[in-house]
Design a protein around this nucleic acid. Structure first.
Lengths: 340, 340
DNA sequence: CTGTTAGCGCTTTCAG
DNA sequence: CTGAAAGCGCTAACAG
């Protein structure tokens, strides 16, 4: 087989091939491909046709080798099984797409050490930025990040010390606010329910603030329980059943997210438990599916999509990218529903 | 500023820098970095230390330029707002991660022409494979794909002509099966509800087979309606309300997915409509959140995660990758719940 | 507006 | 087991 045969079962057509077909130089093809520099319309058209004819696709790797900006951004999320993060991802993706940047991504499944490994792996593709979740990172990781010099954006939280930029909201404020709300509605004996997200330090921040405020206001935490497996409606339903069986005097349950809370609500509906009279329920996130329920859940509306958008902007916009680090607090709103 | 300063705000440390620090040649560093070829443990350690010290991260772009396999796979999905696809994505991601391949991805939002554009864009990073949704692609697109020679895997469907490999199940079989089931349960007047996924040709295949089988069995389609916006519980609830108001004699509603069906179920629960006596409900996918509902929904269980796993395997495994194209039908199971 | 030259950082091939 | 040379496909810089 001649050595010119395709390597690696891949088409190896290059700009030089296109140039030959179009009767121009390789450099002209390069200019056409990336739409940069002056090329006459006539020649541009000829080059485009030649490329289409032989099936040439611009090779972005080659240019990126030279160290010029690579239109790839690393994105690390804890999971894809939670709408919260897929909405963030949508925000990131839509925003990056507009400027021709692609996300390359990794999922940690809430394992702390996975993040560092994934980040180092992502960096091998020289992304122009790295979007990761949360502000808590080991010193070693931080120093690696700084050595490589990638621009980073940490999302979902603003309570802490970001490596450089961060976009999110204060979980401490969320926990405080919800405790105040429950107290105002007269609820005192409250259980807190989290799931695997309990590994999530942001949920812990909400919890700490919540318990503190609750205690200060004369309430108390009846139980802090973690469900098996990831957050889900079935898990919320089960835990609600268990809590009610166990505690005679329970005023309210604060769930670490809406899926769990919705499961709790379904349990109450099915069992004829009067909400909020017999039991109050509160969630977190303000997910859209709640609108289908017969009762509006009290929850905290989080700006998920917007977090993705802002994070992507921070990385996509060179003007911002070379300025001082910034922390963007998008805030949250407590939505008073009918369940508290 | 000296010209050696970092270009583009990026660290420009190279293998040569590591080599100097470790007192070896650049080639040796290369061997250590990709764990290929013989290097003594002593030297390997020295190189690793040097790399860590100066913060060097292996640059995979550079090697990939030469046309050798690039550990990137393009993934194109219709949306991230549907659990079905995030579960597929999880399967893809987990499988690829094991062999050190990263997904680079794009979302079409169900726009047909977006797919081709995104695919061409993804190809610019010379992925070793392309995973896309559905079997319907324009001839132009097919020929471009063939010219570039990327290995493709089309997922979610097997009813049609794949470009090369495909992994999924038969939507025609699903529609037929559900019609048979409803007929067997005595339901005749059936409404069909789809959402934006109506743009999705797979839903259309289910619908066609469903209607055909229904008619053959003496049933009939009362109405075929499309909800506004993407599938969701609220949309399903609303459409159920509307359908019931409009049609006096409606035996059952077949929803194009579980979210819509769950919304319908919630409506019936809230309004005291007896299911399946007054109205039967059926969904599609068998999503986990259904377990939280007081009534088990009749639906078709689809192998979403597994589709992702198999698709990724087809691309990750070179042995498979260089063999003949294959169509993998993972099948589906109709789950008889309490709603029909 | 178009072409020429000189690398980018790495991997392959071929020597030792 | 380690090293030197050649070149991957492309782009910045500079000519014309």
């Amino acid at each position: 087989m001649p050595k010119s045969a395709q390597k690696d079962s891949k088409n190896q057509t290059t700009m030089t091939d296109v140039a030959r077909h179009a009767g121009v130089s390789q450099m002209t093809v390069s200019r056409v491909m990336r739409g940069h520099g002056y090329v006459s319309d006539d020649i541009r058209q000829r080059v485009m046709n030649a490329a289409n004819t032989i099936g040439y696709v611009h090779n972005r790797l080659a240019g990126a080798v030279s160290g010029y900006d690579n239109a790839l951004v690393g994105v690390i999320l804890p999971t894809l099984q939670n709408r919260v993060f897929t909405e963030v991802m949508s925000g990131i993706n839509e925003t990056l797409e507009k400027v021709g940047i692609r996300p390359v991504f990794g999922v940690t499944e809430y394992l702390a050490d996975a993040e560092e490994k994934i980040a180092m792996d992502l960096l091998k593709w020289r992304p122009s930025g790295l979007i990761m979740t949360g502000l808590e990172h080991s010193d070693h990781f931080r120093s690696m990040i700084e050595k490589t010099g990638v621009r980073t954006v940490e999302i979902m939280d603003v309570d802490g010390e970001p490596v450089s930029d961060c976009v999110g909201f204060s979980h401490t404020a969320v926990g405080t606010q919800m405790a105040q709300h429950l107290l105002a509605r007269g609820h005192r004996a409250v259980a807190y329910v989290a799931s695997l997200d309990g590994r999530d330090l942001r949920a812990a921040k909400r919890f700490d603030a919540f318990v503190k405020t609750l205690a200060e206001g004369g309430g108390h935490l009846v139980e802090h329980c973690l469900t098996e497996g990831p957050s889900s409606m079935p898990a919320g339903q089960q835990v609600t059943r268990d809590l009610l069986a166990k505690h005679r005097h329970l005023d309210a349950i604060y769930f670490s997210n809406d899926d769990l809370a919705a499961g709790g609500m379904l349990h109450c509906l099915a069992e004829g438990i009067s909400v909020p009279h017999d039991l109050a329920l509160a969630g977190f996130n303000g997910l859209g599916f709640l609108d289908a329920f017969p009762m509006r859940l009290t929850t905290t509306q989080t700006p998920r999509f917007q977090i993705g958008v802002e994070a992507a902007k921070l990385i996509a916009n060179p003007a911002i990218a070379h300025s001082e680090p910034r922390a963007v607090d998008l805030g949250c709103v407590l939505v008073e529903g009918e369940t508290t």
